[in-house]
């Protein structure tokens, strides 16, 4: 299987379709394959594919050196992330190629991997497989069933862990703003020190800015050095968006506008008119 990945990477580079293949190579420890940029056909043998290729490479798509033509060794969530980036006008689908794979148990050495058919983003329209979505639904339900005070304490304890390293932002494909609101300091919109108030403000605004955009790739939570349950928070907002607008980020096709950039007659307007 890795031979297929390598030969497809080589073909894409040789044909000039892309100038870089963003994939994985072995890390220092077994449980973490690391992002690897291949620009030279001779280097494709460094690429690996195993259950420790955790996804999230779409974060590199908006970098200038990559956005001009790149292939991504991509999970279904990464494909969805790339699609959102196209919808939001950050990259053009013409410049994206995909070497898609799905692992039925990511992070588990025995996790089975299969390659996905297709090369261009359009080939993956309506790819919906996504194990993470199902696993987290029960946890969302558990949190939502808590009385508000208990839920408040739960999130307060989670956000208290935050050291404000912004790894969640750095690892997120959707956090591509040239200047993040957290870095706007004239005036300082969000307190920067790792104290409860600023930590709450930062973690909530990060999540809000991802509503209707997050594809639940989990890169933020994997990057978080304090184990904050960021995917859970993202999933709660994704559930809100799904219930209110019947919309899941990154599904469908890239030329459809995102949920907050479009209007449908069926959109609910309870906040304007009663019912």
């Amino acid at each position: 299987m890795i031979d297929t990945v390598r030969s497809r990477a080589a073909e894409l580079l040789k044909s000039g379709e892309v100038s870089v293949v963003v994939g994985y190579r072995e890390g220092r420890r077994r449980e973490l394959a690391v992002p690897h940029f291949v620009r030279d056909v001779a280097d494709v043998d460094a690429l690996v594919l195993d259950p420790f290729c955790s996804g999230g490479l779409a974060v590199f798509a908006t970098r200038e050196a990559v956005s001009q033509g790149a292939a991504f060794v991509a999970t279904p969530q990464d494909i969805r992330s790339l699609r959102v980036l196209v919808q939001e006008g950050q990259i053009t689908s013409e410049n994206v190629r995909i070497i898609g794979f799905a692992c039925q148990a990511p992070g588990n050495p025995a996790g089975e991997i299969r390659l996905l058919e297709g090369s261009r983003l359009e080939d993956f329209d309506n790819v919906i497989e996504c194990a993470a979505d199902n696993n987290i639904a029960a946890e969302v339900a558990r949190i939502m069933a808590m009385p508000p005070e208990e839920r408040w304490r739960f999130w307060r304890a989670e956000f208290d862990k935050c050291v404000r390293c912004y790894a969640c932002r750095a690892a997120c494909p959707m956090c591509y703003c040239a200047e993040c609101i957290a870095d706007r300091n004239l005036p300082q919109w969000i307190e920067t020190t790792a104290r409860p108030r600023g930590n709450f403000a930062w973690n909530l605004i990060r999540a809000w800015h991802l509503a209707g955009r997050c594809t639940l790739c989990g890169a933020c939570e994997r990057a978080c050095s304090e184990g904050i349950k960021l995917t859970l928070l993202n999933a709660m907002l994704a559930a809100e968006v799904r219930d209110a607008f019947d919309y899941v980020a990154g599904f469908g096709c890239a030329d459809e506008a995102g949920v907050f950039a479009s209007f449908k007659d069926s959109d609910k307007e309870e906040f304007l008119i009663d019912g």
């Binding site: 690897h36 940029f37 404000r164 390293c165 912004y166 790894a167 750095a170 990057a223």
Partner: peptide, 8 residues
């Protein structure tokens, strides 16, 4: 090249 630019 692969640095994400976080503060970890």
């Amino acid at each position: 090249e692969r640095c994400l630019g976080c503060g970890i």
